[in-house]
Nucleic acid binder design. Structure first.
Lengths: 153, 153
DNA sequence: GTGCTTGCAAACGTTTTGCAGACTC
DNA sequence: GAGTCTGCAAAACGTTTGCAAGCAC
Protein backbone atom coordinates (compact mmCIF):
# COMPACT_ATOMS: atom_id res chain seq x y z
CA UNK A 1 0.00 0.00 0.00
CA UNK A 2 3.09 2.23 0.21
CA UNK A 3 2.62 4.43 -2.81
CA UNK A 4 4.21 7.28 -4.59
CA UNK A 5 2.14 9.85 -2.80
CA UNK A 6 3.89 9.12 0.46
CA UNK A 7 7.36 9.57 -0.90
CA UNK A 8 6.86 12.35 -3.39
CA UNK A 9 7.90 15.34 -1.38
CA UNK A 10 10.30 16.81 -3.90
CA UNK A 11 11.42 16.45 -7.46
CA UNK A 12 14.38 14.40 -6.34
CA UNK A 13 12.19 12.05 -4.34
CA UNK A 14 10.16 11.24 -7.39
CA UNK A 15 13.22 10.75 -9.52
CA UNK A 16 14.52 8.26 -7.00
CA UNK A 17 11.20 6.48 -7.06
CA UNK A 18 11.29 6.44 -10.81
CA UNK A 19 14.78 5.03 -10.93
CA UNK A 20 13.86 2.37 -8.43
CA UNK A 21 11.27 1.11 -10.87
CA UNK A 22 13.79 0.82 -13.67
CA UNK A 23 12.94 4.18 -15.17
CA UNK A 24 15.42 6.71 -16.46
CA UNK A 25 15.95 10.25 -15.38
CA UNK A 26 15.68 12.61 -18.30
CA UNK A 27 15.53 16.35 -18.76
CA UNK A 28 11.90 16.15 -19.81
CA UNK A 29 11.00 14.33 -16.63
CA UNK A 30 12.97 16.58 -14.36
CA UNK A 31 11.38 19.66 -15.90
CA UNK A 32 7.91 18.21 -15.84
CA UNK A 33 8.21 17.41 -12.17
CA UNK A 34 9.62 20.78 -11.43
CA UNK A 35 6.68 22.34 -13.25
CA UNK A 36 4.26 20.19 -11.28
CA UNK A 37 5.78 21.17 -7.96
CA UNK A 38 5.72 24.83 -8.89
CA UNK A 39 2.30 24.87 -10.49
CA UNK A 40 -0.92 26.03 -8.94
CA UNK A 41 -3.33 23.14 -8.85
CA UNK A 42 -5.46 22.50 -11.92
CA UNK A 43 -2.91 22.67 -14.63
CA UNK A 44 -3.64 21.15 -17.97
CA UNK A 45 -1.18 19.08 -19.94
CA UNK A 46 -0.85 22.09 -22.15
CA UNK A 47 0.02 24.41 -19.28
CA UNK A 48 2.65 21.97 -18.16
CA UNK A 49 4.05 21.69 -21.65
CA UNK A 50 4.36 25.46 -21.79
CA UNK A 51 6.16 25.58 -18.46
CA UNK A 52 8.51 22.80 -19.46
CA UNK A 53 9.15 24.28 -22.86
CA UNK A 54 10.16 27.58 -21.34
CA UNK A 55 13.28 25.78 -20.19
CA UNK A 56 13.54 22.88 -22.58
CA UNK A 57 11.94 23.99 -25.83
CA UNK A 58 12.09 20.67 -27.61
CA UNK A 59 10.00 18.70 -25.16
CA UNK A 60 6.99 17.55 -27.05
CA UNK A 61 3.45 17.54 -25.72
CA UNK A 62 3.24 13.82 -26.34
CA UNK A 63 6.14 13.36 -23.96
CA UNK A 64 4.24 15.34 -21.38
CA UNK A 65 1.25 13.07 -21.75
CA UNK A 66 3.36 9.95 -21.61
CA UNK A 67 5.08 11.09 -18.47
CA UNK A 68 1.95 12.27 -16.77
CA UNK A 69 0.59 8.82 -17.44
CA UNK A 70 3.65 7.23 -15.96
CA UNK A 71 3.56 9.49 -12.91
CA UNK A 72 -0.06 8.67 -12.42
CA UNK A 73 0.73 5.00 -12.52
CA UNK A 74 3.32 5.63 -9.81
CA UNK A 75 0.75 7.46 -7.74
CA UNK A 76 2.60 10.75 -7.86
CA UNK A 77 0.00 12.75 -9.74
CA UNK A 78 -3.73 12.54 -10.25
CA UNK A 79 -5.81 14.00 -12.98
CA UNK A 80 -9.27 15.42 -12.79
CA UNK A 81 -11.97 16.14 -15.29
CA UNK A 82 -13.25 19.62 -14.65
CA UNK A 83 -16.54 19.57 -16.48
CA UNK A 84 -15.73 20.14 -20.11
CA UNK A 85 -12.38 20.88 -21.59
CA UNK A 86 -9.06 19.29 -20.97
CA UNK A 87 -8.16 17.25 -17.93
CA UNK A 88 -6.16 18.92 -15.20
CA UNK A 89 -3.31 17.41 -13.25
CA UNK A 90 -1.74 17.91 -9.88
CA UNK A 91 0.41 16.17 -7.33
CA UNK A 92 -1.56 13.62 -5.41
CA UNK A 93 -0.16 15.07 -2.22
CA UNK A 94 -2.12 18.25 -3.02
CA UNK A 95 -5.29 16.22 -3.05
CA UNK A 96 -8.65 17.87 -2.68
CA UNK A 97 -12.10 17.88 -4.19
CA UNK A 98 -13.26 20.48 -6.65
CA UNK A 99 -16.33 22.65 -6.87
CA UNK A 100 -16.57 24.17 -10.30
CA UNK A 101 -19.01 26.89 -11.23
CA UNK A 102 -20.84 26.19 -14.45
CA UNK A 103 -21.50 29.85 -15.03
CA UNK A 104 -18.19 31.57 -14.49
CA UNK A 105 -15.77 28.69 -14.33
CA UNK A 106 -14.52 29.54 -10.85
CA UNK A 107 -12.90 26.60 -9.13
CA UNK A 108 -13.09 26.12 -5.40
CA UNK A 109 -10.84 23.61 -3.74
CA UNK A 110 -12.82 21.78 -1.15
CA UNK A 111 -11.16 20.04 1.78
CA UNK A 112 -11.83 16.32 2.06
CA UNK A 113 -14.16 16.90 4.97
CA UNK A 114 -16.78 18.24 2.59
CA UNK A 115 -16.95 14.86 0.93
CA UNK A 116 -16.89 12.80 4.06
CA UNK A 117 -20.59 12.27 4.39
CA UNK A 118 -20.93 11.51 0.71
CA UNK A 119 -18.16 8.97 1.03
CA UNK A 120 -19.90 7.35 3.97
CA UNK A 121 -23.27 7.18 2.24
CA UNK A 122 -21.75 5.70 -0.87
CA UNK A 123 -20.03 2.98 1.11
CA UNK A 124 -23.05 2.18 3.21
CA UNK A 125 -25.56 2.11 0.44
CA UNK A 126 -23.57 0.72 -2.42
CA UNK A 127 -20.23 -0.44 -1.07
CA UNK A 128 -18.80 2.22 -3.32
CA UNK A 129 -15.52 3.79 -2.32
CA UNK A 130 -15.38 7.27 -3.77
CA UNK A 131 -12.25 8.98 -4.95
CA UNK A 132 -13.03 12.65 -4.43
CA UNK A 133 -9.84 13.76 -6.13
CA UNK A 134 -10.77 12.50 -9.48
CA UNK A 135 -13.74 14.53 -10.49
CA UNK A 136 -15.39 17.85 -10.13
CA UNK A 137 -18.68 18.72 -8.56
CA UNK A 138 -20.45 21.18 -10.80
CA UNK A 139 -22.90 23.78 -9.72
CA UNK A 140 -23.14 27.52 -9.11
CA UNK A 141 -20.77 29.59 -7.08
CA UNK A 142 -22.14 32.12 -4.60
CA UNK A 143 -21.75 35.06 -6.96
CA UNK A 144 -23.44 33.42 -9.91
CA UNK A 145 -26.19 31.91 -7.79
CA UNK A 146 -27.10 35.28 -6.33
CA UNK A 147 -26.90 36.90 -9.74
CA UNK A 148 -30.25 35.19 -10.22
CA UNK A 149 -31.23 32.21 -12.35
CA UNK A 150 -30.36 34.36 -15.33
CA UNK A 151 -28.01 32.96 -17.88
CA UNK A 152 -28.18 29.24 -17.94
CA UNK A 153 -25.00 27.79 -19.41
CA UNK B 1 -38.08 29.75 -12.37
CA UNK B 2 -40.53 27.61 -14.34
CA UNK B 3 -38.28 25.50 -16.47
CA UNK B 4 -38.36 22.81 -19.05
CA UNK B 5 -37.88 20.06 -16.54
CA UNK B 6 -41.26 20.71 -15.00
CA UNK B 7 -43.15 20.47 -18.23
CA UNK B 8 -41.24 17.81 -20.05
CA UNK B 9 -43.33 14.79 -19.34
CA UNK B 10 -43.65 13.56 -22.87
CA UNK B 11 -42.32 14.13 -26.33
CA UNK B 12 -45.30 16.29 -27.15
CA UNK B 13 -44.80 18.43 -24.07
CA UNK B 14 -41.31 19.26 -25.14
CA UNK B 15 -42.37 19.99 -28.67
CA UNK B 16 -44.93 22.43 -27.33
CA UNK B 17 -42.29 24.07 -25.21
CA UNK B 18 -40.02 24.28 -28.21
CA UNK B 19 -42.66 25.86 -30.35
CA UNK B 20 -43.46 28.35 -27.63
CA UNK B 21 -39.90 29.59 -27.87
CA UNK B 22 -40.12 30.14 -31.58
CA UNK B 23 -38.57 26.80 -32.47
CA UNK B 24 -39.77 24.47 -35.18
CA UNK B 25 -40.88 20.90 -34.92
CA UNK B 26 -38.90 18.66 -37.20
CA UNK B 27 -38.51 14.95 -37.71
CA UNK B 28 -35.03 15.03 -36.29
CA UNK B 29 -36.27 16.65 -33.11
CA UNK B 30 -39.24 14.38 -32.71
CA UNK B 31 -37.08 11.31 -33.13
CA UNK B 32 -34.38 12.57 -30.84
CA UNK B 33 -36.88 13.23 -28.10
CA UNK B 34 -38.48 9.91 -28.61
CA UNK B 35 -35.07 8.28 -28.33
CA UNK B 36 -34.37 10.21 -25.15
CA UNK B 37 -37.63 9.17 -23.55
CA UNK B 38 -37.02 5.55 -24.46
CA UNK B 39 -33.37 5.41 -23.61
CA UNK B 40 -31.82 4.01 -20.49
CA UNK B 41 -29.94 6.77 -18.71
CA UNK B 42 -26.36 7.47 -19.74
CA UNK B 43 -26.69 7.51 -23.47
CA UNK B 44 -24.04 9.16 -25.56
CA UNK B 45 -24.73 11.42 -28.50
CA UNK B 46 -23.65 8.53 -30.64
CA UNK B 47 -26.14 6.15 -29.04
CA UNK B 48 -28.86 8.66 -29.64
CA UNK B 49 -27.79 9.15 -33.22
CA UNK B 50 -28.00 5.41 -33.78
CA UNK B 51 -31.47 5.25 -32.27
CA UNK B 52 -32.67 8.18 -34.33
CA UNK B 53 -31.10 6.89 -37.51
CA UNK B 54 -32.85 3.57 -37.15
CA UNK B 55 -36.01 5.47 -38.06
CA UNK B 56 -34.68 8.50 -39.90
CA UNK B 57 -31.45 7.44 -41.54
CA UNK B 58 -30.41 10.85 -42.80
CA UNK B 59 -30.28 12.62 -39.46
CA UNK B 60 -26.72 13.69 -39.02
CA UNK B 61 -24.76 13.46 -35.80
CA UNK B 62 -24.16 17.19 -35.90
CA UNK B 63 -27.91 17.70 -35.79
CA UNK B 64 -28.04 15.50 -32.73
CA UNK B 65 -25.44 17.63 -31.02
CA UNK B 66 -27.14 20.84 -32.01
CA UNK B 67 -30.46 19.66 -30.69
CA UNK B 68 -29.05 18.25 -27.49
CA UNK B 69 -27.54 21.66 -26.95
CA UNK B 70 -30.83 23.31 -27.58
CA UNK B 71 -32.68 20.93 -25.29
CA UNK B 72 -30.14 21.52 -22.61
CA UNK B 73 -30.66 25.24 -22.92
CA UNK B 74 -34.37 24.62 -22.45
CA UNK B 75 -33.67 22.56 -19.35
CA UNK B 76 -35.08 19.38 -20.83
CA UNK B 77 -31.90 17.33 -20.82
CA UNK B 78 -28.66 17.37 -18.89
CA UNK B 79 -25.35 15.95 -19.82
CA UNK B 80 -22.76 14.37 -17.61
CA UNK B 81 -19.09 13.63 -17.96
CA UNK B 82 -18.50 10.08 -16.88
CA UNK B 83 -14.78 10.15 -16.27
CA UNK B 84 -13.15 9.82 -19.65
CA UNK B 85 -14.89 9.21 -22.90
CA UNK B 86 -17.89 10.88 -24.42
CA UNK B 87 -20.47 12.84 -22.47
CA UNK B 88 -23.75 11.14 -21.67
CA UNK B 89 -27.17 12.68 -21.81
CA UNK B 90 -30.51 12.10 -20.20
CA UNK B 91 -33.75 13.84 -19.42
CA UNK B 92 -33.42 16.17 -16.51
CA UNK B 93 -36.55 14.67 -15.03
CA UNK B 94 -34.62 11.41 -14.68
CA UNK B 95 -32.16 13.25 -12.52
CA UNK B 96 -29.78 11.48 -10.25
CA UNK B 97 -26.15 11.45 -9.31
CA UNK B 98 -23.70 8.94 -10.64
CA UNK B 99 -21.14 6.75 -9.02
CA UNK B 100 -18.80 5.41 -11.65
CA UNK B 101 -16.25 2.71 -11.01
CA UNK B 102 -12.84 3.57 -12.36
CA UNK B 103 -11.91 -0.07 -12.61
CA UNK B 104 -14.79 -1.76 -14.31
CA UNK B 105 -16.85 1.18 -15.53
CA UNK B 106 -19.96 0.13 -13.66
CA UNK B 107 -22.37 3.00 -13.14
CA UNK B 108 -24.54 3.27 -10.08
CA UNK B 109 -27.37 5.74 -10.05
CA UNK B 110 -27.47 7.38 -6.69
CA UNK B 111 -30.62 9.00 -5.33
CA UNK B 112 -30.34 12.70 -4.50
CA UNK B 113 -30.33 11.91 -0.79
CA UNK B 114 -26.79 10.65 -1.09
CA UNK B 115 -25.66 14.08 -2.11
CA UNK B 116 -27.69 15.99 0.41
CA UNK B 117 -25.02 16.44 3.00
CA UNK B 118 -22.47 17.40 0.37
CA UNK B 119 -24.89 19.95 -0.96
CA UNK B 120 -25.37 21.37 2.50
CA UNK B 121 -21.66 21.58 3.24
CA UNK B 122 -20.94 23.24 -0.05
CA UNK B 123 -23.57 25.88 0.58
CA UNK B 124 -22.53 26.53 4.15
CA UNK B 125 -18.84 26.68 3.54
CA UNK B 126 -18.66 28.27 0.14
CA UNK B 127 -22.12 29.41 -0.80
CA UNK B 128 -21.78 26.92 -3.59
CA UNK B 129 -24.96 25.37 -4.93
CA UNK B 130 -24.10 21.96 -6.34
CA UNK B 131 -25.78 20.39 -9.29
CA UNK B 132 -25.48 16.69 -8.58
CA UNK B 133 -26.85 15.75 -11.95
CA UNK B 134 -24.04 17.14 -13.92
CA UNK B 135 -21.06 15.09 -12.97
CA UNK B 136 -19.93 11.72 -11.90
CA UNK B 137 -18.32 10.72 -8.69
CA UNK B 138 -15.50 8.36 -9.48
CA UNK B 139 -14.18 5.65 -7.25
CA UNK B 140 -14.32 1.89 -6.84
CA UNK B 141 -17.39 -0.22 -6.82
CA UNK B 142 -17.82 -2.90 -4.17
CA UNK B 143 -16.58 -5.70 -6.42
CA UNK B 144 -13.48 -3.93 -7.59
CA UNK B 145 -12.67 -2.58 -4.14
CA UNK B 146 -12.81 -6.04 -2.62
CA UNK B 147 -10.76 -7.43 -5.49
CA UNK B 148 -7.89 -5.73 -3.66
CA UNK B 149 -5.88 -2.67 -4.49
CA UNK B 150 -4.64 -4.58 -7.52
CA UNK B 151 -5.02 -2.92 -10.86
CA UNK B 152 -4.72 0.81 -10.45
CA UNK B 153 -6.31 2.62 -13.39
C1' DG C 1 25.32 -2.28 -25.55
C1' DT C 2 20.58 -2.71 -23.83
C1' DG C 3 16.43 -1.02 -23.78
C1' DC C 4 13.89 2.88 -21.99
C1' DT C 5 12.60 7.62 -23.80
C1' DT C 6 12.15 10.89 -26.98
C1' DG C 7 10.56 13.93 -31.06
C1' DC C 8 7.91 13.89 -34.80
C1' DA C 9 4.02 13.10 -37.61
C1' DA C 10 0.02 11.14 -38.13
C1' DA C 11 -4.19 9.20 -36.36
C1' DC C 12 -7.80 9.00 -33.15
C1' DG C 13 -12.64 9.94 -31.20
C1' DT C 14 -15.59 13.55 -29.86
C1' DT C 15 -17.53 17.80 -30.73
C1' DT C 16 -18.11 22.24 -33.29
C1' DT C 17 -18.54 25.12 -37.27
C1' DG C 18 -19.67 27.34 -42.07
C1' DC C 19 -22.42 26.97 -45.64
C1' DA C 20 -26.15 26.37 -49.06
C1' DG C 21 -30.36 24.21 -49.51
C1' DA C 22 -34.78 22.49 -47.28
C1' DC C 23 -38.33 22.92 -44.44
C1' DT C 24 -41.78 24.81 -40.72
C1' DC C 25 -44.70 28.15 -39.69
C1' DG D 1 -42.01 34.48 -47.58
C1' DA D 2 -39.21 34.83 -43.35
C1' DG D 3 -36.44 32.70 -40.66
C1' DT D 4 -35.29 28.31 -38.51
C1' DC D 5 -33.18 23.84 -39.19
C1' DT D 6 -30.81 20.52 -41.78
C1' DG D 7 -27.05 17.61 -44.14
C1' DC D 8 -22.62 17.67 -45.44
C1' DA D 9 -17.77 18.46 -45.25
C1' DA D 10 -14.24 20.15 -42.89
C1' DA D 11 -12.07 21.72 -38.93
C1' DA D 12 -11.15 21.95 -34.01
C1' DC D 13 -9.89 19.91 -29.89
C1' DG D 14 -7.46 16.95 -26.56
C1' DT D 15 -5.18 12.85 -26.60
C1' DT D 16 -2.85 8.55 -28.24
C1' DT D 17 0.13 5.87 -31.18
C1' DG D 18 4.02 3.97 -34.38
C1' DC D 19 8.36 4.66 -35.53
C1' DA D 20 13.30 5.47 -35.86
C1' DA D 21 16.79 7.98 -33.58
C1' DG D 22 18.80 9.28 -29.01
C1' DC D 23 20.04 8.84 -24.51
C1' DA D 24 20.57 6.92 -19.47
C1' DC D 25 22.31 3.34 -17.40
Amino acid sequence: MARGEDLARSVEDVLVLLRSKGGRVTTARRQLLSALFDAPSHVTADDLAAAVQARAPDVHISTIYRNLDELERLGVVVHTHLGHGPATYHLSSASHGHLVCESCGATIEAPPAVFEQLAKEAIERFGFRIDPRHFAVLGRCADCASAGSAGRR
